[in-house]
């Protein structure tokens, strides 16, 4: 067995990588939520913040390449959020509720940003993980 498959434990990863990713992880999370929640006020928004959240999955995969993420659940959550993305504007924007109550506009924008952010983040995360663990179940895949 001399192929790419290696049976070493995840703890054999480079200690530098582990420390750097461990240090950066909370800041990446914070930056993702900052970009999502301030989408209507500063540059950014649902898609950009969602991509930053998806890069959290990538960072975890780099230091701990074990396929134990439940992608089915993430995919189901993504479907639910797509339904919400369709329902929220249909119920609020297209019916004219927002036009009659302009004080809810900021709330509506923030809600939409959060919905799109979660949808994109889980979607890209599932995509990357499924490609990364393609045919590698039960084994450890180092980069």
């Amino acid at each position: 067995m001399s192929g790419p498959v290696s049976d070493t434990m995840p703890t054999d990863e480079s200690i530098v990588l582990q420390m750097v990713v461990g240090l950066l992880y909370p800041f990446m999370l914070l930056f993702g939520f900052y970009v999502i929640l301030n989408g209507h006020y500063t540059p950014g928004g649902g898609f950009q913040g969602g991509s930053v959240l998806a890069s959290l999955f990538v960072a975890r995969y780099v230091v701990y390449p074990v396929d134990d993420t439940d992608t089915e659940t993430l995919h189901s959550i993504q479907r639910v959020f797509l339904a919400l993305i369709v329902i929220a504007p249909s119920a609020v924007l297209f019916t004219g509720v927002i036009a009659r109550n302009p004080e809810f506009r900021s709330l509506y924008l923030t809600t939409m940003d959060v919905l799109i952010g979660v949808q994109v983040g889980f979607g890209l995360g599932v995509a990357v993980l499924r490609f990364a663990f393609f045919q590698g179940v039960g084994k450890t895949w180092h980069l």
């Binding site: 790419p4 991509s51 998806a54 890069s55 990538v58 995969y61 780099v62 890209l124 990357v128 490609f131 990364a132 393609f134 045919q135 895949w141 180092h142 980069l143």
Partner: peptide, 13 residues
Amino acid sequence: GLVTLLYLAALKR
């Protein structure tokens, strides 16, 4: 970020 990781994972195959 993401695309680089995908390429690396593909190259690993």
